[in-house]
């Protein structure tokens, strides 16, 4: 009797552990499946022209996505210009001056803001920027993405500033250096590598966003650098070309996906290695 229940417990144990191993294998397998499939299918669409030419109408071969690559960088650049300074300053506040009642509230709402659906950020940018300007624009796309970027940068900066030991702050203050100089030239400086890594991750994340750009940055078949005009981005281009019935456009979507995924992967892996080297405890 007791040995039977023992066997049963052993069996349940083994079964559950196998399921757990299986789940991990499933997760890894799905990742590899998506990555390798995108890489393999996208690679065949890519050649030199792909990076330097403009899109061609369907049926004509040899087009590229130069305008979308440039456009993605422009829109993400605008987002960074808005979100990085605000985010770092807010992070400094939370880490250095955060021993009061306001700080936990800011921290909490930054986390909540982090969960805002990206399409809602797009709507807000539309009503705030596109409606008054009467035009879809690269700038409004940047505003939409900055809403998504801000909470990530704020919280990353805070966490990293907090890893700077208090002894360093105290040593500097004991030397008679004013507090603000300590904050900027010593604390921020010490945490800078980590913060830059965090910013890179945030950039990679919003660079992959599509939904908020559909009705802000919109689309453009030509090369554009103007912030007050619609602009093409890689993600929106993938969406448009993937939903089109033309096979050659579908393949361009895969090629663009390859470029996008390569950027995202490189940034993520490099920054993981970076943080590990610097903050290995």
């Amino acid at each position: 009797m007791s040995s039977l229940s023992y066997l049963k417990r052993r069996a349940v144990n083994s079964l559950m552990l196998v399921l757990s191993y299986g789940s991990a294998m499933f997760g890894v397998a799905v990742l590899l499946l998506i990555l390798l499939y995108t890489m393999a299918r996208g690679a065949s669409a890519i050649n030199w022209d792909f990076f330097v030419r403009l899109p061609r109408p369907t049926g004509e071969s040899g087009g590229g996505i130069a305008n979308a690559i440039v456009g993605s960088f422009v829109v993400v650049g605008v987002a960074s210009a808005i979100a990085i300074p605000i985010g770092i300053m807010a992070g400094i506040y939370l880490a250095e001056f955060g021993k009061n009642r306001l700080a936990p509230v800011v921290r909490y709402f930054a986390d909540v803001l982090n969960g805002i659906p990206s399409i809602v950020a797009g709507i807000v940018a539309y009503t705030m920027v596109v409606l008054p300007m009467h035009e879809f624009s690269a700038f409004s796309g940047g505003v939409a993405l900055s809403l998504l970027m801000l909470p990530i940068i704020t919280r990353t900066s805070e966490e990293l500033l907090k890893t700077v030991p208090d002894t360093i702050r105290e040593a500097a203050l004991a030397l008679g250096i004013p507090r603000w100089k300590v904050t900027i030239f010593i604390v921020l400086r010490t945490a800078l590598t980590g913060i830059i890594t965090g910013i890179m991750l945030a950039v990679a994340r919003v660079g992959g966003e599509t939904a908020p750009l559909l009705f802000t940055a919109f689309n453009n078949s030509f090369m554009s650098l103007r912030l007050d005009q619609p602009i093409s981005t890689m993600t929106v281009l993938i969406y448009n070309y993937a939903s089109s019935p033309y096979r050659d456009w579908n393949e361009i979507a895969w090629g663009t996906a390859f470029v996008l995924i390569a950027i995202v992967l490189v940034v993520n892996i490099v920054s993981k290695l970076f943080t590990k080297a610097k903050y290995a405890l």
């Binding site: 995108t38 993938i238 969406y239 996906a257």
Partner: peptide
């Protein structure tokens, strides 16, 4: 490395999931 791979799953842009979902 397994941790990293699971986290990378979160880093893949949703448009890529959509593309893969639609065609595969």
């Amino acid at each position: 490395s397994v941790s990293l791979m699971i986290e990378l799953l979160a880093a893949i842009p949703s448009i890529i999931y959509g593309l893969w979902g639609l065609f595969v």
